[in-house]
Nucleic acid binder design. Structure first.
Lengths: 106, 106
DNA sequence: TAACTATATAACTATATAGTAATTTATAAA
DNA sequence: TTTATAAATTACTATATAGTTATATAGTTA
């Protein structure tokens, strides 16, 4: 087993924290279709513009998304696909738990 | 692409939140060696007893760890191995970013 | 029973952060 | 230039939670 230093654990935790917010996941899920402007994301998520911008800034800082300006619009796109693998893992495990739960309790 | 409902995103986020804390990761990492008592975890993590207990309760609520009492001691063990796959994914991606960073900035 | 040990819980403090409203910055077009 | 629009930032509020101290609970042994 690999011995992880405290510092490494902090980095991992900090990165996972990026993914542990429903609105950020919603944004990332929307970006899975392809790059989108902030406005488009505001519409598709139903969140406020400032809020979406802030989340996107965070995600960009962590190299989870990238940005390109095209005229007035700034388009964001996903640069780290591992996000979706992580979500899949979580989903599969939740399903497994549900299944076990229903087996035990009928 | 699978369309995820808001509720599903909240569940995923809530679960990932469990993994987005350094101390919890430290505890889980220690448990990777095998089941451990609260006391042992207090020692190996250097955290306070109440703090460790609280984190373990949270992890147990989310079916990430299980517990067995043996006399005075309560032993915790991991029930959800996907945690480590998730951490591996995060680690690998951080390495990739580091590499890219050093390529760009020397 | 009483005394002791391990764990859990309650109450509290301090901190982090999601969301919002208002403002600023950046770009485009009239 | 002025006007308009998109995005980012600032300042603020409200909430959640990590950590701590003190206490309660659960189990063991004398």
């Amino acid at each position: 087993m690999k011995q992880l230093k405290d510092e490494a654990l902090e980095l991992i935790a900090y990165r996972l924290k990026m993914l542990s917010d429903p609105m950020r996941l919603k944004i990332l899920h929307a970006l899975q279709e392809g790059e989108k402007s902030v406005q488009e994301l505001v519409q598709s998520t139903g969140a406020g513009q400032a809020n979406v911008s802030k989340h996107l800034s965070l995600l960009a800082q962590h190299n989870i998304v990238g940005r390109t300006r095209k005229g007035l619009h700034v388009y964001y796109y996903i640069t780290d696909d591992s996000i979706f693998k992580i979500c899949d893992l979580v989903c599969r495990n939740m399903e497994k738990n549900m299944k076990r739960y229903s087996e035990v309790f009928g």
